[in-house]
Structure formats: C-alpha cells, structure tokens
Simulated scan of single mutants.
Amino acid sequence: MYTKNYIALLTKDNTAETDVERKALFRILSTDDLYRKVTHLYDFKEHSIKPESLENGEVYLSSSSRKLVMAAFNLYNGHYEADIFDTFAGLDDKNFNLVIQAIKIRFNKY
C-alpha cells in the first residue's frame, strides 16, 4: 500500500504519526508524477501546501494530476472544495484507489 516515495515524503517532512492530514496529502503526492513535482506543491520548510501552484502555471499538471492535487489539498486542510463527482470522474482505477486510500488515512478508517 505504501511506496518508497510516500515514506520519503513523510521522512523529509518529519511528519508525526498522528498527522493524518499530511499523511493523506503525501499519499496522493507520492505518485511518480507528483513526487517529481512535490517541491512546487508543498513547502517543506514551512510545512504547508502551495495552493498558488495550481493557479500560477509554475508546474504543469495533466487533468488527472490536477484532480489528485486538488483532492490532496482538500484532505489536507479543505483549501479546495472537492466535488466527489468531479474528483473521481475520469480517474483510472489506480488513481481512484489512491484517493480512496488517502480518504481512509485522513479519517482513520484503514
């Protein structure tokens, strides 16, 4: 269930075991594509998301990657409203399951 990218993100951020918000965020950001772009999406010094990265064109995100990031940001602190239909529509099975995993982490249902 957990990848080396996920463990690396938790380690780099020094995420507390009880910090389900960041754990859910990092679960989604651990995909190979988003992991390569994580410094554009998350500030490890400030321990916070960079929501402006979705608006300023700093990083290219495919439509499915954008949906994943918006879901991750929503699970982190509700920054983006995530409509269930819009979030899941068009995601392949792998990414659909990834978001479900992140939801389970966020709400301690795993």
Results as ranks from 00 to 15, higher is better:
Thr3Gln: 09
Asn5Val: 04
Ala8Gln: 10
Leu10Val: 07
Thr11Glu: 12
Asp13Gly: 09
Thr15Tyr: 06
Glu17Met: 11
Thr18Val: 10
Asp19Leu: 05
Glu21Phe: 11
Arg22Asn: 09
Ala24Met: 03
Ile28Pro: 00
Ile28Gly: 00
Leu29Phe: 05
Ser30Met: 05
Thr31Asn: 03
Thr31Trp: 03
Asp32Phe: 09
Asp32Ser: 14
Leu34Asn: 02
Leu34Trp: 02
His40Ala: 15
His40Cys: 09
Lys45Arg: 12
His47Glu: 14
His47Tyr: 10
His47Asn: 15
Pro51Asp: 09
Glu52His: 08
Glu55Lys: 15
Asn56His: 12
Asn56Thr: 06
Tyr60Asp: 11
Ser65Cys: 10
Val69Leu: 08
Asn74His: 15
Leu75Phe: 12
Tyr80Trp: 14
Glu81Gln: 13
Glu81Gly: 11
Phe85Gln: 12
Asp86Leu: 09
Phe88Pro: 01
Phe88Thr: 04
Ala89Ile: 07
Asn95Glu: 12
Phe96Tyr: 14
Leu98Val: 04
Leu98Lys: 04
Leu98Phe: 10
Val99Gln: 02
Ile100His: 08
Gln101His: 13
Ile103His: 07
Ile103Leu: 13
Ile105Tyr: 04
Arg106Ala: 06
Arg106Thr: 07
Phe107Glu: 11
Asn108Glu: 14
Lys109Pro: 01
Tyr110Asn: 14
